[in-house]
Design a protein around this nucleic acid. Structure first.
Lengths: 209, 209
DNA sequence: CTTTGAACGAACCAGCTAGTTAATTGTAGG
DNA sequence: CCTACAATTAACTAGCTGGTTCGTTCAAAG
């Protein structure tokens, strides 16, 4: 088979982005080293500046890609035909699984929050990615309310927030939680417990008297 | 009154720690600058090394102080005489208020998690600070179970985790959440809503059929 | 007083780090 | 072919950064 072409802009760009994602996620924004990112690539530091302009713009690109990936996956959910209660549980578990399998993303979000979202604040890409899962959620809640199963006064974004809070905390704070309470929230043996617990939690809230 | 003595080891130490807390919290571990910390102090960089030895040890000292402060406050709660349901709500709200008024602490915890808790992992101080609030919580749950008000199978640490997750997420992720969903979770106008919601959430879980 | 050790300050340094310069090579279109 | 331009490379730099050196000053004990 043909060797990969010596020059492939798309591949080079993608590779830089991939390595940068890992480096920023592992070391934080200030802790990540441009030289280190370049070294772990099959290309050079100059290419990084050629394609992305600066360390900061590279970081923005990393964030944009991470969010875009995750939002795309959220779209795949098809819960319209399910019972509202089952739908909520399924949505929660999808988010749960998703967060668990994308620790890099959670770390990037934490890093970006430490920087007060100053990078994505200026990103036009991100602001257009407004959440489709929110619409899905809103429709589920509407059906649940109509069926008299859910409380009347619930805001979809609040429900989304609870699901996120649970999933994000479990991965984002795993290390300090383990250090202090000697409990590894990501131990596979506890995975099902937490997954079920999240559904119980959200549904307990939605169906409370 | 007498001017402050020209030399006061305790005050110097405390001032360095205070400034360092702000700087680490604002910029992350790698982003914080030793020179900047020193400059914002009434002393010099040399003193910082004199008292703390290194940037890393200074960061550990900051974390230890932050955790110690917060744990001490948790101790003050006296809910033994309350109805279990009221006690849970009060505990949740105490945590809520606490997190809200200590954003620095949350940021430091996030930073430390990005570094995989490698700093507090070696701290003997922190491992001894095992959570007294957990005992309080365990006793409340026990009383609630005995009275037939709470489900039987609930682990105190799981309840603590839910409360933390909600409170931590609200402050730690406020910036990205606001950037993406255009909702400021720390808007004072929404404070009561979230405070009540947290109690509803936890009690909904504890009293679910 | 004098001694002693803790507390302090200024200048310094070696290595690092983001970003740049300018020259070189592959490749597609004519 | 060959030309024009995109893609790539290596070497360089100016400024920063954590950490250190070493000399000075204060205050309490004797």
């Amino acid at each position: 088979m043909a060797a990969q072409p010596a020059r492939d802009a798309e591949r080079t760009r993608a590779e830089i982005l991939e390595v940068a994602t890992r480096e920023f996620s592992d070391n934080g924004y200030a802790g990540a080293r441009v030289d280190e990112i370049a070294a772990k690539t099959r290309t050079t530091k100059r290419m990084l500046y050629y394609y992305f302009g600066s360390k900061e713009q590279l970081f923005v690109a990393v964030l944009e890609q991470a969010y875009t990936t995750i939002r795309a996956l959220e779209q795949e959910l098809d819960v319209e035909h399910l019972d509202p209660v089952d739908a909520i549980r399924q949505l929660a578990e999808l988010t749960f699984d998703h967060h668990e399998s994308h620790p890099d993303f959670i770390r990037l979000v934490s890093i970006e929050n430490i920087h007060r979202a100053e990078h994505i604040g200026t990103s036009s890409v991100l602001s257009r990615l407004a959440n489709p899962a929110l619409d899905v959620l809103a429709r589920i809640l509407e059906r649940g309310r109509a069926a008299g199963r859910f409380r009347e006064d619930v805001d979809p974004l609040d429900v989304h927030m609870v699901i996120s809070a649970f999933c994000v905390f479990r991965t984002a704070n795993q290390h300090t939680f383990d250090a202090i309470f000697k409990r590894d929230m990501l131990d596979p043996a506890r995975r099902e417990h937490y997954r079920t617990m999240l559904g119980d939690l959200v549904l307990g809230y939605l169906t409370a008297r």
